[in-house]
Amino acid sequence: MKNQNLYNYILGIADNSLILGQRMGELTGHGPSLETDIACTNISLDLFGQVRSYYQYAAKIAGDKRTEDDIAMLRKEREYVNVLLVEQPNTDFAYTIARQFLFDVYHFMFLTELQKSRDVTLSAIATKSIKEVSYHQRFSSDWIKRLGDGTEKSKSKIQNAIDSLWTYTDELFHQVEADKVMVGENIGVDVTQLKDNYYQRVNAILTEAMLEVPESKWFQKGGKEGVHTEHLGYLLSDLQYMQRAYPNMDW
């Protein structure tokens, strides 16, 4: 492939939305209230919409027979390059919100920069997506505050979720080869530059929500290189089930 780096770079963005969208989609019908259920499904739908734009673009760049669905559903575990954060399970609503919040803050900053990409397709997708993500960020931040400053029980649950997921935040700012090349070509976003702002913003909201900012400095990474937590395999067996069980068919 001529544009292998660009292709890899797009997957790096899209896989995050794919896996998080899939996680959010698991909740449809099982939310804490009807209204919240509808809101979570909206987030899932936004993310899948973005995913389709990215993969369609990736398919074009790949220039072979692969479609958006092949790219989404027919790779092996080690070929998914999403960050570990987004694949973490919906242990409870606190985990769902904490995961969403920790990703949304990053996602918003990332898309803000991606709008300036020299690649017009990526820049256009970013411009469309950022409005959706701006809303996601509002939704998840509001819920962080509600849970943090709600009851004793909710406070301890959301604190626990934040503490557990914190270890996956640093990876958001880790660069792989494709990232570096794309930054060099003014196509990609230099995520290392987002880190300070990210923690400032996250810490400010956690503080407003009466929560402790975790002190742990030990972080997990590997997702961007395709080394995932054990959760991803199960998510993929659901995601890929039909394509694997009935290969080469149209749906």
Binding site: S33, E35, T36, I38, A39, R138, F139, D142, R146
Partner: peptide, 14 residues
């Protein structure tokens, strides 16, 4: 149904 006005607006939107 919503617990507060922000949530009511967000829910109404959704």
């Amino acid at each position: 149904h919503a617990a507060d006005e922000e949530m009511a607006l967000e829910n109404a939107r959704d």
